[in-house]
């Protein structure tokens, strides 16, 4: 399978065990989005979740972040069952980068980062400004800390959102198609910067990255989890065993991995739901 390998036993940062999630449908019935899904994200890995639109990729992140609950199954974060420990985010720290920057438009970029630090509540107040300035510099926004979000470009807003997520020093970073609304040049720059910052931080953080862009998935991922169409369960799991510093758009190994995953993805879609 070339660069693709099956996962071996590791220490897991996040474990979704037999998760089922339903939402109310518009006709009053139930819409099962996730069905008996079990996935485990390795500690310190950059795991990418891919799957067709509407298969519940974002729902997985929202469940890990505690924004929504699960209907069946359990989620363990660093071994802690998040439903029996609602304060898990305070001890573990979870950063979240959304598809849209979701910055507070009435706060400057620095104040947006301070908002996250305030919310987590584990950093002394006197360090807030220095931390905010450090991470803004890290994402290339030095000198823009007093700008309001509406005074900078969409790409700069998303950089600030990334800085906000890293600033709380999370052990887990959730990223929901964070570059999908940006132009390709900006997106590529930010992908590289994400890897750079993650590397600077020592790759201790577990990143769960959701995307529907297979190229992006292969370029970023240590591991890829491919989900079936709704109701989603795990279709296939891949390991991309190529060091990030060796990855480039011209890399043949990366292209081979992309081709294989892409073939699988299309077979899954053409073969009908859950049948491959």
């Amino acid at each position: 399978m070339g660069a693709l390998e099956q996962i071996t036993s590791e220490k897991y940062s996040i474990e979704l065990i037999n998760i089922t999630k339903k939402f109310s449908s518009v006709n009053g019935g139930e819409l099962k989005v996730i069905d008996n899904l079990t996935v485990k994200f390795r500690e310190g890995s950059l795991s990418v979740v891919i799957g067709p639109s509407g298969c519940g990729k974002s729902t997985i992140l929202n469940m890990i972040a505690g924004i929504i609950g699960v209907d069946e199954g359990k989620i363990l974060v660093n071994g802690i069952d998040i439903h029996s420990n609602p304060n898990y985010k305070k001890t573990i720290g979870i950063g979240y980068v959304f598809q849209q920057p979701r910055l507070l438009e009435w706060r400057t970029l620095r104040e947006n980062i301070i908002f996250a630090l305030k919310a987590i509540g584990s950093t002394p107040k006197e360090k807030w400004n220095a931390i905010a300035e450090y991470y803004l510099k890290l994402v290339g926004l030095e000198g823009f800390s007093n700008y309001y979000p509406l005074q900078v470009s969409g790409g700069m807003q998303q950089r600030a959102a990334i800085a906000r997520a890293f600033a709380i020093n999370p052990r887990i970073l959730l990223m929901d198609e964070p570059f999908s609304h940006l132009d390709e040049i900006t997106a590529e720059t930010l992908r590289n910067e994400l890897i750079k910052i993650w590397t600077i931080e020592g790759k201790h953080k577990t990143i769960v990255f959701v995307t529907h862009d297979l190229r992006e998935a292969v370029y970023l991922a240590d591991e890829i989890f491919m989900l079936t169409p709704r109701p989603a369960h795990l279709f296939k799991h891949y390991v991309i065993d190529i060091p990030h510093e060796q990855r480039s758009v011209e890399s043949e190994e990366l292209f081979e991995a992309f081709s294989n995953i892409s073939k699988d993805f299309h077979k899954m879609i053409k073969g009908g739901v859950n049948t491959f």
Binding site: A65, K90, G95, Y96, F115
Partner: peptide, 24 residues
């Protein structure tokens, strides 16, 4: 609601959500 969701994702308490997200 997306900003409220963001606040909750970062573990913001209701008073913080009120002062930083709702009231502005």
């Amino acid at each position: 609601t997306d900003l409220v969701e963001m606040g909750k994702a970062f573990n913001a308490t209701l008073p913080l959500l009120l002062s930083e997200v709702y009231i502005p």
